[in-house]
Amino acid sequence: MTAAIEVIGLTKTYGDLRAVDGVDLTVGEGEFVGILGPNGAGKTTLLEMVEGLREPTAGSASVLGLPAWPRNAALLPRIGVQLQASSFFERLTAREQIHTFASLYGVAASRADEWLERVGLVEKADSRVEQLSGGQAQRLSIACALVHDPEVVFLDEPTAALDPQARRNLWDLLSGINDSGRTVVLTTHYMDEAEALADRVAIMDHGKLLVFDTPAALIHGLDAPTRITLTDGEVLTTREPAVEIARLAEQSRLDGVRVQTGTLEDVFLDLTGREYRA
């Protein structure tokens, strides 16, 4: 597996605050990686160093084999970024917006229109960005990040501040964007989002990378017992769920049971000793 992103000992300090603290991270080509952590964990700072927006205090980051810092003109057309805020030109329509970004990358307007269609904004193409809903603005923002067909895409909390429905809608779009072998790095503070979208999840807290693995492996590594909740409210905790469920089936008590294995929340709790609060 070729590395699309290679981060070694990356550190950023602001005075006494270690915003990012010695992070090592390797992302393979075509991988979808989620960086998960509560607010203030250092996700955005990490991402901005990898994008080449901030100079690391120590360590190094390279993307597609090229150093991220200082700003590398050869690298820029190959990466796409969506920043945390909706970075739009004021008072332009959705179409004008993406056409402008397309022109910055030397991409034809027709390709920009294709992206509008792909993110489902054709009907909103002539609406000004100020009139778009939160979800629509994020879709446009993602389309603007992808309009030049970059090899690596960075999405910084694309679903933050969206209502649950809009968040789920965006997942459908996000889960498809690495289909063509594109590498995607996404930050989020939603556990379920990281679990649903990412091939591998990196959990960050206080600037440190705690673990980096597939969601299944992380949960499996917990060795947490399975919880079976029955309709009458009884909760069974077991390390052999198959046996337990077979027993319940014999007793015809399977109707309405909920089976819960460990979640990433349990992983976080296990790693930090405290509840996960986004």
Partner: peptide
């Protein structure tokens, strides 16, 4: 990756147009 028939503004013109539009629409 280009469609030759469609027009393509240079970054300078695209930015100028975007800024001008933003100004003219700001009553």
């Amino acid at each position: 990756m280009s469609t030759p028939r469609t027009s393509r503004a240079t970054p300078f013109w695209a930015l100028s147009r975007a800024i001008l539009r933003g100004f003219v629409r700001d009553r």
